[in-house]
Design a binder for these strands. Structure first.
Length: 316
RNA sequence: GGCGACAUAGCCAAGUGGUAAGGCAAAGGUCUGCAAAACCUCUAUCCCCGGUUCAAAUCCGGGUGUCGCCU
């Protein structure tokens, strides 16, 4: 079944390391092409976590429709499968209304779930009891033991997972017991439902790190500590995945008296830099991504121009 | 000016005769249900010159530098 020429299925993806300016560029792109933004950031998904995750401003949210921001409670355990469902729903909704979806964010795994036709139905969902059991077993017998066990039941998965990576070993065992073990992404086809225009923003490393450092200082002066305090008072504890986000875990450490605010800031900066590096590494694996190297002094308008003008080469 | 201590990677630091631990940072990487997570790889010839020795970062002499104390 071929789609008609008129049937527009274009989906923009604006990704890149944290603090390059994804949100702003996606916003201006949306204004230019009549688009709506779909969040692809694992932390901006959470409610009450606005400052630390650097969500777009109220004003921007009002001027352009933003989807999947502040939609989950911090006590919830998000998963890729759930994200995929929500994201695809939002994208289809936008397309149905004749608008252009602009996926914006830097959570690589979530990006994968949109880009590829991943079938999460075939592997075990997050089964709390069994997972706890396996985690306890790992605690007791050690990571190597678990890896050997995985080696015995699913040697293919075992060969791809480092023995020290207990978290992943446990997940692989879980998935195997459910039926179909963890697959390699290379076995997964691209999502055929959309015409992706995939852009990764980047800039000189030194400059990016500078921006990160400045951003962290700003988040703190904008009230990050109060935000974290409120979360704690609401009853969200530091064991929750949401509270392990960068900016939050470090402030919690400060509130617990583990170190002073200056050290907390330094820690946040360092962890954010590490994160940005991992994001860049992740994006490098896509050979179909269009890298947009931002030059110093370039305006947002000029960057958006470059994205729009790359129409021809932009398609995957 | 005198006395003493120290001098090992970008930073912290072990090693006191047999040919450079470790940590942090930086850099690179992995990735199908916690992903702002979890995990992996990786960086030196030991301040300079001379001596002793089969062998010196390690011992001796000189130089330079840093720190501390004293006058």
């Amino acid at each position: 079944m071929s789609r008609s020429v008129k049937d527009n299925r274009t989906v923009y993806i604006i990704s890149g390391p944290t603090a390059v300016g994804k949100s702003l560029i996606a916003y201006y792109l949306a204004k230019r092409i009549g688009g709506e933004i779909v969040n692809c950031d694992s932390v901006q998904l959470y409610r009450f976590m606005d400052i630390g995750s650097a969500k777009p401003s109220e004003k921007e949210m009002k001027a352009v429709r933003h989807h999947l921001y502040s939609i989950v409670d911090p006590s919830e355990n998000m998963t890729v499968a759930a994200y995929r469902r929500l994201a695809l729903e939002a994208i289809d909704d936008i397309l149905a209304r004749g608008k252009t979806p602009i996926v914006c964010g830097g959570t690589g795994l979530y990006l994968n779930s949109i880009l590829y036709d991943m079938d999460f139905g075939a592997t075990a969902a997050d089964d709390g009891d069994r997972r706890k059991e396996l985690e306890d077993l790992a605690e007791e017998r050690g990571g190597d033991y678990m890896h050997q066990y995985l080696q015995a039941i699913d040697p293919d998965a075992a060969s791809r997972i480092h023995p020290n990576n207990t978290r992943k070993v446990v997940r692989a065992i879980e998935a195997y017991e459910y039926g179909r073990g963890i697959r390699d992404l290379s076995e997964c086809p691209m999502n055929p439902d959309y015409d992706f225009r995939f852009y990764a923003l980047n800039m000189e490393r030194k400059w990016l790190y500078d921006r990160i450092n400045r951003r962290v200082s700003r988040l703190v002066s904008d009230g990050l500590v109060d935000e974290v305090n409120d979360l704690i008072e609401k009853g969200y504890n530091k064991e929750l995945p949401s509270m392990k986000a960068i900016g939050y875990k470090e402030v919690i450490g400060f509130l617990d008296g583990d170190y002073d605010l200056f050290d907390a800031k330094e820690l946040i900066m360092k962890n954010t830099r590490h994160y940005a590096k991992r994001q860049i590494t992740w994006l490098k694996r896509y050979d179909f991504v269009n890298w947009i190297d931002i030059n110093k002094g370039e305006t947002v308008g000029e960057i958006v121009d470059r994205i729009i003008e790359s129409e021809d080469s932009g398609q995957i």
